[in-house]
Design a protein around this nucleic acid. Structure first.
Lengths: 201, 201
DNA sequence: AGTCATATCTTTATAGTGTCAAGATTGCAT
DNA sequence: ATGCAATCTTGACACTATAAAGATATGACT
């Protein structure tokens, strides 16, 4: 299908891209279906040919952003880093992603309506891709530290919660903190390591 | 001022209370100024006599909820608990609060427009009351463990981030996890303690 | 007691929102 | 070439926040 004056040609993807841009510019609150439609040069009801309602567009946008997010996390652990260093880089990448796009946090986790499957066993839902990266990196770290497998699940969620919490605080609307957020989560990561090392000396 | 048919009498507080109820029932997305006004039995423009816009009402609602939140945290550490036990109870209370009122999390941290002052030094803003409770409990714990004072700030933020992250994940719209969230943050709290204890044996 | 300013609430109006229904236009298969 | 189905437009409706103008009650001052 070619683009004409009447038929856009690739409206579905254009809506997703412009919607994401709009959120980056004006935040989640500044988003509206009509604004996105206008931005794409179509009428206000045109999106309904591709999405049954605004929530479905938001979900598609979230899927797209989640892919970028997952890619960013994957890149951060590519290469042969030591387990501790890999985990360090992963957490830093997680936080940096939302530091660069503050509007993505409330959008992805409180607005989009996407499903985040933590365990791999509820319904047939696939696991949340960013958490999957966490799992691979974490397991490698835990084995290298000789931790028992039984604690893997809880430890993984704890690590995830930590960086997720930093990202959450970091992107909270009215937060004021003069320090460096990156250091916050590394405090615990390193303190865990330091605890071992210090106690051995 | 008495209540008549025309003059409500205590509309400001009534709006705040009904607004909070509305958020608990329908979530942040279900909130609207007109719904709250109707709920209070006044016209849709009546709130403008007490708040300059909807954001100001939301801020007042958030202040009220934050007070309840702070009170809940304070109560959790009342009594003479050992430092580790106090911190344990505090984190549990933090998470339990948002577990009981899932809509409060996005509301307080991404919708209300209140200011969260972490350091005590930016502008003249007062520190965020819930974090103040964290500070007291954390300092007591760190001293009892012989940790150096220089790391207090980062350690506090790390602990806060951890429980905040659990609360954030816990209240994310589409999250699915079969386990117990309370155990997640205790994993790190106890693993920190266990690291010490295990290494000493 | 009477008057009046002020605070509070109502009414009305406007611009913006999501969504639906009916119609117009186009591309594609027959 | 014709008709079908997908896509887009137009117009409507109910809902939203907000502003302006008017109504009503309160409390203070004479």
């Amino acid at each position: 299908m070619k683009e004409t004056a009447y038929h856009h040609g690739d409206l579905r993807n254009t809506l997703i891209e412009n919607g994401i841009e709009l959120i980056n510019e004006d935040g989640v609150g500044g988003f509206s279906l009509r604004k996105v439609a206008a931005r794409c040069g179509v009428s206000h009801a045109a999106p309904y040919s591709h999405f049954k309602d605004v929530q479905e567009l938001l979900s598609a946008m979230a899927d797209h952003v989640t892919s970028q997010f997952t890619e960013s996390l994957r890149r951060s652990v590519e290469g042969d880093y030591a387990p501790q260093e890999a985990m360090n880089r992963l957490g830093t990448a997680y936080i940096a992603f939302f530091q660069q796009h503050p509007a993505y946090f409330p959008f992805l986790f409180f607005q989009s309506g996407i499903t985040i499957q933590v365990d791999g066993e509820i319904d047939g839902a696939p696991p949340y891709p960013p958490f999957a990266v966490f799992r691979e990196t974490g397991i490698r770290l835990f084995r290298s530290q000789g931790l028992p497998e039984e604690t893997d699940g809880k430890m993984l969620l704890a690590f995830w919660s930590l960086v997720h919490g930093v990202a959450s605080l970091l992107t909270s609307s009215g937060i004021r903190y003069s320090g460096d957020w990156q250091e916050v989560w590394q405090t615990i990561l390193h303190s865990g390591g330091d605890m071992h090392e210090n106690d051995r000396t």
